[in-house]
């Protein structure tokens, strides 16, 4: 009888704990959204989205943040693409025949360490490389810094996704005379596709929201990027610079910029969910 009571109390306690945690998470998200919508919405206009800053923009005059929107999409898109090209083979390698080898253990450890490296370090590191190559801050520099920043997140995400695949499923393919590569491409990638997409999205989100890594490597400009070698603006830095001005009108534009950034990430998440759901169709449980 006492036993019974104790177990019911435990159940109660954990239920309350779970509800509390969930409410905290949803509450914070709601508060953040509420703040940027309330403060940013009034400043949001067609001009904001379609024009680059004109002279005096940072004093509250005409213009918009198209330079930062386009710059951010290029930077994070390019960085994600490069990270993807590198991550997928690494993740597959971590689960190849060498999966218990030293190299694999060290690679995983290195990725975990890289994940923890603050993004300003990627920025500084990228900056030194740019200097050594005799280049200046540019779209390309920013893309490379973001690719490095995103790489560990994406690779470890994919690593975990592929680790979930049962051996018996791979063996079903081997038993039909398929090679490891054929199995990787036709079975492993298909089976883990929804989770791989999530890993890509997480990495993109981290990349597009990061200010420190693009500060020195991509620089900032009021113009649209016209080549890989010219500087590029980005939304996080646009927010940073606008918030740093003493003018309330410009600070409001910072919130509008944050809203734009959030909407981009949100739209991508929703699109990714939709595609992930379609990809789940064939997944074997």
């Amino acid at each position: 009888m006492k036993q019974h009571r104790r177990r019911r109390l435990e159940e109660r306690f954990f239920l309350v704990l779970m509800v509390f945690s969930t409410v905290t998470v949803l509450g914070s998200l709601f508060l953040i959204l509420y703040t940027i919508i309330r403060r940013g919405m009034p400043a949001l206009s067609v001009d904001m989205l379609t024009k680059v800053p004109k002279g005096g923009y940072y004093l509250g005059k005409e213009g918009g943040i198209l330079n930062a929107i386009v710059g951010s999409l290029y930077l994070a898109g390019g960085g994600t693409l490069i990270a993807l090209v590198l991550s997928l083979p690494i993740a597959l390698y971590l689960h190849s025949h060498a999966r218990h080898s030293r190299v694999v253990h060290v690679t995983r450890l290195a990725l975990d360490v890289l994940w923890g490296v603050p993004s300003i370090v990627y920025g500084a590191f990228g900056f030194i490389i740019l200097l050594a190559l005799g280049m200046r801050a540019s779209l390309l520099g920013g893309i490379i810094a973001l690719a490095l920043l995103e790489l560990p997140i994406m690779t470890r995400g994919m690593d975990e996704a592929i680790a979930m695949i049962p051996d018996a499923l791979k063996e079903a393919s081997y038993a039909l005379g398929a090679t490891h590569l054929e199995t990787a491409v036709k079975v492993i990638l298909r089976q883990s596709a929804p989770a791989l997409l999530t890993a890509v999205l997480l990495a993109f989100g981290r990349g597009i929201g990061d200010a420190a890594s693009v500060l020195f490597t991509a620089g900032y400009t009021d113009r649209l990027p016209d080549s890989l070698l010219s500087p590029a603006a980005s939304l996080p830095l646009a927010i940073f610079f606008q918030l740093g001005t003493p003018f309330p009108a410009v600070q409001q534009r910072a919130y509008a910029s944050a809203l734009v950034l959030t909407v981009i990430v949100l739209a991508l998440s929703i699109a990714a969910r939709y595609f992930a759901k379609r990809l789940t169709r064939n997944v074997v449980k």
Partner: peptide
């Protein structure tokens, strides 16, 4: 493995049609 097929105890369909 192509000449010697294997049927496992628990069926594992491949993730496709």
């Amino acid at each position: 493995r192509t000449r010697i097929g294997l049927l496992a105890p628990k069926p594992f369909p491949l993730p496709m049609s």
